[in-house]
Amino acid sequence: MITTPPYLQPGDLIGIVCPAGYMAKEKAAECIRVLEEEWGYRVRIGKTLGGASETYFSGTAEERLADLQEMMDDPEVKAILCGRGGYGMTHLVDQLNFKKFRKQPKWIVGYSDITLLHTHLYSNYYISSLHAPMAGAFNEAGYVNRYVQSLRQALEGKWARYHAEAHELNRPGEAVAELVGGNLALLAHGIGTDSELKTRGRILFIEDIGEYLYNIDRMMYQLKRAGKLKNLAGLIIGGFSDMKDTERPFGADVYTIIDNIVKEYDYPVCYDFPVSHTERNYALKVGVGYKLKVTKSKVMLEE
């Protein structure tokens, strides 16, 4: 059974950290304001948000590890919101100590590079986490945006019920299973490690940004050859933004690439679902049971 961390109550404390890429403190100002003034929480800022780092990372690996570990271990902190993703979680994940966290689990919120932490939590400890908008989304979309609001609803324990438009490549069907997934690059990166995602009998969701089309093809084949696509209950293809092509064209767009790789399977598949690196990014609880229903006219995903 999946362990679901306690949902938040007014006045609860949310910690904000940057375990990977650097983020200026002012870019989280609107997020902090909304969390405190609009949503009624308290906020603690970690040392890695707007720190003194002059590199791509928010701090050294040791500094990032200590900041995240402190938030995970502090019983007063009820949720950890990542400021941004980027790259760097792979430096930390094997050194994190989950002893206290397992006794008092809390929501870890993020996407992109944070996918590796989501998969690690799920595959090793069966603890749910939130693949959801991060601090920067409060600037880009505005906190009244439906996708940022889906984060608030998830933290408060309201059950999700999402709808999406039909897509010509969708494969109709229905599935009820635990929902797992995240950024395609990180899912492929985790194969063969302690963070490898269990997918058999699950609904898998994937998304990505800024990749060459041939690399999407390669990573999808990596999942396929590793057996991660064969026995799914269902497959959700999210946004693949800012895709790049080579000088000699690859010859297919990203959704056609994916469709060609999974067309032999008979589970329901939907494309262009609102989970992505753009503002179209619904909060999804990793490991929680969802119902996916794909019809010719629409897609529904609900807890």
Rank of each mutant, 00 (worst) to 15 (best):
E168L: 14
K100H: 11
L117T: 08
G173R: 12
G136K: 03
R146G: 05
V93Y: 15
S112E: 04
V109H: 10
R161Q: 14
R161N: 14
S112P: 02
H118N: 10
D113W: 07
T90S: 11
W107L: 13
R171G: 05
S129T: 15
S128M: 04
Y122K: 03
F101N: 02
P133G: 08
S150A: 02
D113L: 05
K106W: 11
N124D: 02
S129C: 05
A164I: 04
H131A: 10
L117W: 03
K158V: 14
R152E: 12
H118K: 05
I127L: 12
V148K: 00
A141K: 05
K78D: 04
H120K: 12
E174N: 13
R146L: 12
F101H: 07
K106G: 13
I114L: 15
L179A: 09
R84E: 09
D94T: 13
L130Q: 04
S112Q: 03
K100V: 09
A137L: 00
F101M: 06
Y162K: 06
G136E: 06
E76W: 00
V144N: 05
V144I: 09
S128E: 14
K100I: 00
A135Q: 01
G136I: 04
E178T: 11
H131D: 07
L121M: 12
L117K: 09
V109S: 10
H120M: 11
V93K: 10
R102I: 14
E174F: 13
Q153G: 00
C82T: 15
F101V: 08
M72S: 06
G83C: 00
A79R: 04
R84I: 14
R146F: 02
M72A: 02
G173I: 08
L81M: 03
R102T: 14
H118D: 04
G142C: 00
N97R: 14
H163I: 01
M71W: 00
L92F: 09
S123L: 06
Y147T: 10
Q153E: 11
N124L: 12
A164C: 05
Y147M: 01
M134H: 02
N139E: 02
Q153K: 11
P75I: 02
N170T: 11
L155E: 03
L81D: 02
M89Y: 06
M71E: 01
V93A: 09
M89P: 07
P75H: 07
G157P: 03
D94A: 11
A137C: 08
Y125V: 08
P105Q: 09
K103F: 05
